[in-house]
Structure formats: C-alpha cells, structure tokens
C-alpha cells in the first residue's frame, strides 16, 4: 500500500554526540530503486547519518520514515553493511555463521535458523564468490574477503533498503567491480541502496544520485546535476568550520537534549 512512498524520508534530522551536534537539520527524500552515493570529507557525519537513520544513535530532533512508515515498523526491510573495522575479526565464528546472522532479524527471538535459511546463506555466499570459504574462521580472511562476507550477510537479510558504510574500502579493483555489478543487479530488482563512498571519480560513475554531506546536507540529486565543482568545493572546502565552532558552543551551553 505504501509502494510509491519514498524509500527513506528524513525531516529536520539533527544528531549529536555528547550534546555536540554533528549533523544539522537534514531534510531528505530518497526515491525507491536507486543506487545512491553518500560522499563527504572525513568526519562529515556519513557514518553518523546511517547509524541515526537505522536507530543506532539517538536523534536530537526531527524524524525518520522508511517506506512511509516509522522506523520501528520497517526494520525488516532494512539491511546494513557496517564499516569493516566495527567488529573483532578474531571472534570464534565461521563465515557461514556470520552470513546466517543476516537471517536472524527475520527469525525473531528464540527461533533457530532453518534449512532454508542455510540455503539462502549459501546462495548469498555464492553471489559474492565466497562459498568455498563457508567453513573458515573469519580471522583467516583478507580485508576484501571480510568485506564480501559482510555483503553476503546483508544480502541474506533480503531487504528493500540497504545502508552500506564504505563497502569498497580495502577492496581490490576486481572485487570492487564485482560488488558494483551485484549492486546494479539489486537495483534491477527494485532495491534502494545508500552507499558511503570516498573516491570521487568512481562515485560519479557508479551512482544514480549523490548525497553531498558535511555536517549538513550540501546537496542531493541526480549525479549529473550535483557533481559540480562548485558543490564539491562547498562539501570539501574549509568554509564549514563555522559549523563545528558553533557545535562546540552548543555543547558548552547544553542547548540540545
């Protein structure tokens, strides 16, 4: 019934760490079935945006809607690829165990993964060419392989909206193009993907739309329209330091919740 609703809608989203705002009043309406890049300098708040939208961080003001519904109701439709550094790769689990975790959300509490879940997990591993590694412990993987395991786990979630935090970091060119092919395939099936990406030249090539971010939303639109020198300069240039000064002041005065 909400099929035409935007995949993601943010209204006046402000996010703060320890009362110091790092994202200011973001308004965004992301249509369905697009591959969208999020770009901005280090510390721009890209990871923060993703985490806040998924409810991993408290938001200071504003609201989030996913497929026209509040976040809580659409958790099942969201998939997540965190930054690779966010977990301990010496953890005693196998590649298969990690990919199966992608099924956990659908299972709900208590229930165990079934045979079908295993089948899905194997298929997802196959898609990222990691099936031969299914029974390896995760610490024996290279960086690019770890990234592909995370991707397989997200695929196993079978979601409609994906958030991916730097899926291309530490990945060689061949893997990168394999992942891009995979993402295009997902787009053909009507999925929406928001991908944090650091390399501007390839960003222009890969994504349908771009979110330019630096503590505030600098621009959002089709790549051909927003990939301009002027907008990029605003995003990456030094002029936004005023915002961080103000953020410090806000923290001192304890203005936010």
């Amino acid at each position: 019934m909400h099929d035409t609703a935007p995949a993601l809608e943010l209204h006046d989203l402000t996010v703060a760490y320890h009362k110091k705002p790092v994202l200011w009043g973001i308004d965004l309406e992301v249509p369905q079935g697009k591959l969208i890049g999020i770009v901005g300098p280090n510390g721009a708040g890209k990871s923060t945006l993703i985490k806040a939208v998924m409810g991993l961080l408290p938001i200071s003001s504003g609201w989030v809607k996913v497929f026209g519904q509040p976040l809580k109701k659409s958790l099942q439709r969201i998939g997540y690829v965190p930054q690779r550094e966010s977990v301990d790769w010496d953890f005693p689990v196998s590649v298969m165990d990690v990919v199966l975790m992608g099924r956990y959300g659908r299972l709900g509490l208590i229930k165990r993964p079934t045979k079908e879940d295993r089948e899905v997990a194997r298929a997802c591993l196959e898609k990222v060419h990691m099936l031969p590694y299914a029974n390896r412990q995760i610490s024996n993987l290279s960086g690019g392989q770890q990234q592909r395991v995370f991707l397989a786990r997200a695929l196993a979630q079978e979601s409609d909206l994906y958030f991916m935090d730097e899926p291309f970091s530490g990945v060689d060119a061949a893997t990168e193009s394999a992942i891009i092919t995979l993402l295009h395939e997902l787009r053909e099936r009507g999925k929406t993907m928001l991908v944090v990406h650091h390399d501007l030249p390839t960003a222009r090539e890969y994504f349908d739309m771009l979110i330019l971010l630096n503590m505030r939303l600098v621009a959002f639109g089709p790549t051909s329209e927003v990939f301009t020198n002027e907008l990029l300069q605003t995003t990456y240039g030094g002029r936004l330091t005023i915002l961080s000064d103000v953020a410090e002041a806000v923290k001192e005065q304890r203005i936010l919740r």
């Binding site: 965190p82 975790m101 959300g105 993964p113």
Partner: peptide, 22 residues
Amino acid sequence: TVFYKECLVTSFDVGFARAAGF
C-alpha cells in the same frame, strides 16, 4: 541455549544486531 542466537549476534556485532531489531 534459548537465546544463543541473540547472545551470539550481539556479542559479535552489536550495531548490526540493533539494526536488525534485537
């Protein structure tokens, strides 16, 4: 035993577990 899956996923990747609604 009952909550093995939950204990495992939150211990391994707490962000992912929360995003998946645990």
